[in-house]
Design a protein around this nucleic acid. Structure first.
Lengths: 173, 173
DNA sequence: CAGAGCATGTAAAGTGTTACATGATTTA
DNA sequence: TAAATCATGTAACACTTTACATGCTCTG
């Protein structure tokens, strides 16, 4: 009830999704999960995670439970029914999913072509190498991972390959 | 000198790039360009554009000039040499370019597979339709556009096609 | 019993969003 | 001359980041 708009931000959605995946978790665990996540879209800092969780609790999307025998005040949080339904709405948001998001590659792509020729060649070569390196990292990560994140890694891999393919077309135009 | 870190945010970089493309422009023109931009990553609202431009002026990345005969106080802004070099650094930032950015499709992708089967099929079908629609829009946009944004649209198109391809693989797994 | 790690959180700073405010200039 | 558009900006609010603060619990 704190927030006028009832939709979730990208971060809040990702947060609820992570909590639901665990069933029940402590804010600290969720924070660790974000901090050690291979995709660093959010820092997972305490200054973002704790306030966000408390906001979601006050909006009745999360329920918190405290263990009696813990003097640290460790919280166990889980999704309420309202939280489940808000998360579901977030997951199936077609408009959000079809949008381009905030893609630093895409944002810069128009500018690369206007670099002076020598600088452009050097840079595009370096960028292609960096993409290739990332692609091979993702390749091994996908072989290692047989869990739920496998398809996500597959998507990452395809996106990077698409970037590289676009780059190669650009170079020889 | 206002800002301790000397790097640019995504928005500031995009702002400088837009200003440089015009050579000299008024903040209002830049704002319009962002507002009518087909890629709605930023709102282009006055509350974001004017403060950002004034920040960049106070960091000596932008120079402002006022026409004497205009009582509205219209400003003409252009990049200083410092602004040019800051923009160049931003453009060739490999780490930023290789990162995934904030991609709502990618963020949600892990969750779609865990939807109940019936709901999942319905949703994935709708998502595929939405992607197809977007792909055809981009296709016509690319035919119409013969300017500098053509390759950017081509990238958009390839990214959406990659999403759709990934989605189709997912469905029949 | 010291130090690493668990666990919560706040403070200050910066930035983006929506909504509001103000006045000048052009156009019907 | 009224309305649309040009043109600048501020205010309130929300969120994220970095850095700081506090205390508990386990392990060597």
């Amino acid at each position: 009830m704190n927030n006028l708009k009832d939709s979730l931000t990208e971060f809040e959605g990702a947060l609820l999704a992570a909590i639901r995946r665990s069933g029940e978790a402590t804010p600290y665990q969720i924070r660790q999960a974000f901090e050690t996540s291979p995709s660093p879209e959010w820092s997972g800092s305490s200054g973002s995670v704790y306030p966000a969780i408390n906001r979601l609790v006050s909006r009745n999307l999360l329920a918190e439970r405290r263990s009696v025998d813990d003097r640290r005040g460790t919280k166990w949080i889980s999704l309420t029914e309202l939280g489940e339904s808000a998360l579901l709405d977030w997951i199936v948001d077609i408009d959000a999913a079809v949008g381009p998001g905030l893609d630093p590659f895409r944002t810069r792509s128009s500018e690369w072509q206007e670099l002076p020729a020598a600088k452009r060649r050097t840079f595009l070569k370096k960028l292609e190498c960096a993409l290739t390196e990332r692609i091979s990292e993702l390749g091994t990560a996908m072989v290692d991972d047989c869990g739920a994140s496998k398809t996500r890694i597959a998507l990452d891999l395809e996106l990077q390959r698409t970037r590289r393919k676009w780059l190669r077309n650009l170079k020889y135009q």
